[in-house]
Write a protein that binds this DNA or RNA. Sequence first.
DNA 1: AAAACAGACTAACAATTGTTAGTTTACTAT
DNA 2: ATAGTAAACTAACAATTGTTAGTCTGTTTT
Lengths: 190, 190
Amino acid sequence: MQKPSERKLEIVTVSARLFKEKGYSAVTMRDIAQAMDIKAASLYNHIKSKQEILVLMIIAIAEEYTETIRAIAASGETSVEKIEKVIQLHIDITVRNPDALASLNNDWMHLPKPELQYFLQMREEYEDIFRAIVKKGIADGEIAAYNAEVIIFSILSTIRTLYLWYGKKKDFNANVLKTNLKKVLLEGII
Amino acid sequence: MQKPSERKLEIVTVSARLFKEKGYSAVTMRDIAQAMDIKAASLYNHIKSKQEILVLMIIAIAEEYTETIRAIAASGETSVEKIEKVIQLHIDITVRNPDALASLNNDWMHLPKPELQYFLQMREEYEDIFRAIVKKGIADGEIAAYNAEVIIFSILSTIRTLYLWYGKKKDFNANVLKTNLKKVLLEGII
DNA sequence: AAAACAGACTAACAATTGTTAGTTTACTAT
DNA sequence: ATAGTAAACTAACAATTGTTAGTCTGTTTT
């Protein structure tokens, strides 16, 4: 895997911003070109298709999620500590890629076949690992014995859609999230 | 506002299923027609544009959210009870419209101008009302004094994306959600 | 039986889509 | 200065898009 050139990364960054606002399908190559002050055809000096932009935008981030949660699962920590690390992982990635995460969440189905398969496989592994952490936490009595799927869904939903709120609300910086989000998700609000 | 005909509602239902899978922009009128076993042009005997389908899909649900949360806010209950009612509202609507909620969450930006404005106004009012409930709960000592925006975001994210899990996980029925989700969101998991 | 109508059809449109081919421009290395 | 190259350009394409016009068919209403 070659490291993408400067200009190529710029295309991905600009596209991420546009995809976030209207979705992958509604953004045209001419939209992307205009946002970069060039013509649509010029984009093809750097990328080979619209879908390639999406691949560059999504896959690297998905891989980071997968690799990091593997490491978290393999560590010797308690289940609660592992969940805290997972929350921290999502905060970190959100702060670094607030725009690209919109496509990772909403446009992944437009990935080309092989990358789509790869993405879904990573996503499944990610949820399986998270599920195992939660279930072990329940079995060990660390975590309350509610329906495991409900716990998984409730935590993942929140940390996966962080990108929607980050940057929009002024008091949503990495520090406020770090100190508040873990407590709210783990200890509740009452 | 005329009550839509039988066939019109069928178009909206079929479209909702397709929009959920690929998003509004990626679904063509020919896709919708094929799913109904007719030709694209025939759709226009019932609807006047693709955007009208989206309006019918989103606005009525948005209005139900808005009207119900108004009623909840106006009731004489405690803040925690109000939040429980809001959670229940989302469960109810999700169970009734699992497909349409995908468009309400991801395709609202493709509404025509006047309905877009109306939708955003309702969404803002909805969040304002929910924010007021949470802040009063904190002020009254009913709710822990974490950052209010974090609490709002964490609950809304979960109940707004319920549609992604409902129907996919077998143990996600209305009853399991009703008994588990409120506890997980309010009391946490440890 | 005649008339009206709902709801499907075929055919076509103008606009927009992603993309390619070939050309020009400006900088960099020889 | 010359050659080479990266990255922009113009022009065009074939396919697909939402939508309209006009027609046909069967059922319902008069």
